[in-house]
């Protein structure tokens, strides 16, 4: 048990990154998800490039690029900022596919009916389309949230003092107990992941209230 306290100390960094990059990912997912369906070709083109670049290259490569390569262009970002931006943009790109496909999955009749009722675009989105699409997005977002949590473990490789870093420090001081230390790290991640799963299920249940 003596290893748990320092590991939890490191976990704080992971959770901080998790929360902030989730917010960024949400923002990017909705921006790019709507952007892919925009009226203007330029907007569709730009969002397509963003989504394909971040989905087509690897998360760790993006993380390294932000941290090691950006300074060459005289853009200095801290390791923390690099981690948040890379994770947020990467999972934002994946999330935009969830947003896009769920917006398209709302039956066309819903859009037609709300136009017939003389609803404006914002009202139509807010009251008719998004509430239905949101319910369909939740399972996809849930999966991505777990992937994002796992992705926070990579920030160790860009020198952040996260749970993996703390574990590696503990390991070098207690080499005979390294399997126990690694096991604790896995268990801690599992507990956080499981808590997230429960939270997502709660949201899914809440979104389903009052709908058959």
């Amino acid at each position: 048990m003596q290893f748990v306290t320092p590991l939890l100390e490191g976990l704080k960094v992971n959770l901080e990154i998790l929360v902030v990059s989730t917010l960024l990912a949400f923002l990017m997912a909705f921006l790019a998800g709507f952007g892919r369906l925009a009226k203007y070709r330029v907007v569709r083109g730009i969002t397509l490039v963003y989504v394909e670049v971040f989905r087509g290259t690897s998360l760790l490569v993006q993380l390294f690029w932000m941290y090691f390569a950006l300074p060459a262009m005289h853009v200095n970002v801290s390791a923390m900022a690099a981690a948040i931006i890379a994770l947020g943009l990467n999972y934002g790109a994946y999330g935009s596919e969830v947003v896009r496909s769920c917006l398209l999955a709302v039956p066309k009749g819903q859009t037609e009916a709300s136009i017939a009722l003389n609803m404006t675009y914002p009202l139509r989105m807010r009251r008719i389309i998004l509430p239905q699409a949101w319910r369909m997005m939740l399972p996809g977002f849930g999966n991505l949230q777990i992937e994002l949590l796992k992705g926070t473990s990579l920030v160790y490789l860009i020198t952040l003092a996260d749970i993996t870093y703390k574990g590696m420090i503990l390991r070098s001081a207690n080499i005979s107990q390294q399997s126990l230390i690694f096991a604790w790290m896995l268990v801690i991640y599992f507990v956080v992941a499981y808590a997230l799963v429960l939270l997502i299920r709660y949201f899914e249940r809440r979104a389903a209230v009052g709908r058959g």
């Binding site: 777990i146 796992k150 473990s153 993996t164 590696m168 399997s179 690694f182 991640y189 599992f190």
Partner: peptide
């Protein structure tokens, strides 16, 4: 296995 990061599994 699915809910824990690959990198820590690899270290293990």
């Amino acid at each position: 296995i699915r809910c824990t990061p690959l990198i820590i599994q690899l270290f293990f």
